[in-house]
Design a protein around this nucleic acid. Sequence first.
DNA 1: TTTATTGTTTGACAACGATCCAACAGTGCG
DNA 2: CGCACTGTTGGATCGTTGTCAAACAATAAA
Lengths: 105, 105
Amino acid sequence: MRALPHPATDDIELTEVLRALSDPVRLEAVARLAAAGEMTCGDVGRNLGVHKSTASHHFRALREAGVVMTKQDGRQKLMSLRRDDLDARFPGLLDSVLSAAHATV
Amino acid sequence: MRALPHPATDDIELTEVLRALSDPVRLEAVARLAAAGEMTCGDVGRNLGVHKSTASHHFRALREAGVVMTKQDGRQKLMSLRRDDLDARFPGLLDSVLSAAHATV
DNA sequence: TTTATTGTTTGACAACGATCCAACAGTGCG
DNA sequence: CGCACTGTTGGATCGTTGTCAAACAATAAA
């Protein structure tokens, strides 16, 4: 149950968040997370049609940017959106991105 | 007075907008554009401390993503934000990004 | 027409990123 | 303990990106 490095709320950088969300695979993953609440890494790999190592890489990018939280749960890991932290740091940003993502699908 | 390629409003892609805004130089340029209304390419180069060819490159990225409009004005070019187009396509997105950019400065 | 100004293009270079595969590591189950 | 499952890490590859410098193009002014 090693502690994974999540940036503190105040350390979340806007450009890194935008960058993390600017990849289609990651944006889709975030949209699904927003709808589903929590997902495993493998779920994303299967649903988005990428190799599990690619999914792992994307989740690291999202985690390091401060977009998602990772919680160990038995032998798998559950990813969840850091909604409150993002809302606190950048009010309205996540919502507008998510609704924009819905609009384009 | 050659017509520069600007994507139609409906063709603006969310991931490309986010990607365009995820570079610190471009985000700063957009924030200044939002405040100043219009700027020349050279203004940005001088204000942001990058070579003019770099500024030109960044403006192309912003233009191709649909974030800015370029208008020829004599021997210089005026860049302006496509606020209305962006608001129409992704409501609230630009505002939340801009206020987030202000918050972090 | 010559000169000065303003951007663009091209080349070069270093850094990064997305992807897959293969090997590894941690965890729970029998 | 050994096996199955889940995710991470490292290597390899291929493309993209940010940057500058230098050459070029377009335009206005003298």
